[in-house]
Write a protein that binds this DNA or RNA. Structure first.
Lengths: 250, 250
DNA sequence: ACTTGTATTAGATATAGATCAATTTTGACA
DNA sequence: TGTCAAAATTGATCTATATCTAATACAAGT
């Protein structure tokens, strides 16, 4: 087989699969009309694979692209000059990474892959051009970025107002609903991240995270063996997060 | 004077002053070419005035517009079902409010005016249309929203990793640089918000905020009488925030 | 299977900052 | 100018969670 043919095969593999992607109802294609889809497919670089621990991009390297998670999971974090890490988010299939970097020349955070992960790359210059031509896509971008702001406010709220138990319950419920969106079990999943990352994300010590997990387990709210988690009593978890309910219980 | 003439006067007062606005180098006009400016001016509703304590918009009312602060200052906050408030930001002249609401049908927070304040209103439907025609404006919107995400991450970081002193030093420095942007004194200003709001924003008790203020004062880093603040030693404040430096000092 | 490093769990202690209680200051309005 | 409510400060305790230490479980590579 000559090289030209092989290249052609590779090219057609890479191209034009947004419409076949099982995540199209979560990801950017969601906002694009059937017949405009190929324009999005034209700019996307699909199917980049990273192995556990590899970086999709690094803080302070030139910002070029946003990335959609196809499979696997990603952790983003900011590293301070002092070497402190602050985990800013966990990203699951269908979610878009890099929106926090569009204000700066360099990436504003580092994106590290938590397990073998496949992503689609959207070069921002092209994406920005495309959003000018596809109003729905532009609207969707505003939507996603706004959502990201809200998420972050929600996190700030959790960090400043809630106890360790409340924070962890909230995280478990967030993960749960995100698994559900992907039509996976909302009560039976395996955490993509280590206790350490959870602790960092939620502003707690690892030990505290561990203790809360065992406490929840003793109360029969969850069952956890390592990263394998089963939510036995979702209502109880919701009660833990909801301070309104808590007030009522006093 | 007949009514037609009076209306005309009002209309021309309202219209076409973005190019004369002293904040045009901070606000949306910044991104717009001289000759496109009137299109921005066409959609903006200028000079709405609110008195201290009034709401520009309320959480859970239909989202319609973003607002740029012209003069005065604004506090945004989220109220939980339990009645808890979380202050999500303080906004000064030239800054844009409402970017966190573009993902939802209703406003995601409540915007309360901290003093007599004038704002410009940008109806989002028109703004979104306009950004399609003015690439620079679209780019600027992405920029602003991304910045907002970063700010919020920064806040989350502050809340989860920093001490009371560090948080307050960071806030003072942030305010300082924002006053400076507006060519006002970076060392001598009056806080637009109450201690209560500072405490809420930074995830502290009011008492703690008060104590840190007096501690800083005793150390000769600042001088504070009520809301009037003078930064006597900006370097010292920077040292407080920078954990790198702190490590070195141990 | 065995080693070695890493992640998780567990117990004991320390502490920053919350909470409670009281006082002083400020500012708005009659 | 005096009155009153809200805001700010100060002091005394209390507590959730960090920190320190150590034990145990787990995973990867030889």
């Amino acid at each position: 087989m000559n090289q030209a043919i092989r290249l052609h095969q590779v090219a057609s593999q890479l191209k034009a699969t947004c419409n076949k992607c099982s995540l199209s109802n979560l990801c950017l294609p969601l906002a694009v009309e059937e017949n405009d889809l190929e324009r999005l497919e034209d700019i996307v670089l699909q199917g980049k694979i990273f192995n556990r621990g590899e970086h999709i991009f690094d803080q302070s390297t030139p910002f070029k692209s946003c990335f959609a998670v196809r499979s696997g999971s990603v952790k983003t974090s900011i590293i301070t000059e002092g070497g402190d890490e602050q985990v800013t988010g966990f990203f699951m299939p269908g979610e878009l990474i890099g929106l926090d970097s569009m204000a700066t020349d360099n990436y504003a955070c580092t994106a590290k892959v938590l397990e073998r992960t496949s992503v689609c790359e959207f070069p921002v210059d092209k994406l920005e051009q495309l959003t000018r031509m596809l109003p729905e896509l532009q609207h969707h971008m505003y939507h996603l970025m706004s959502q990201e702001i809200q998420n972050s406010h929600q996190l700030a709220m959790l960090l400043s107002k809630n106890t360790a138990e409340e924070r962890i319950a909230a995280l478990l419920l967030s993960l749960s609903s995100r698994f559900q969106r992907r039509r996976m079990s909302p009560t039976n999943f395996s955490l993509p991240m280590a206790r350490n990352d959870i602790a960092n994300f939620l502003g707690l010590a690892v030990e505290t995270v561990s203790r809360v997990f065992t406490r929840f387990q003793n109360q029969g709210i969850i069952k956890a063996r390592g990263r394998e988690v089963e939510l036995l009593d979702v209502e109880a978890l919701q009660l833990v997060t909801c301070d309104f309910a808590r007030q009522g219980c006093r």
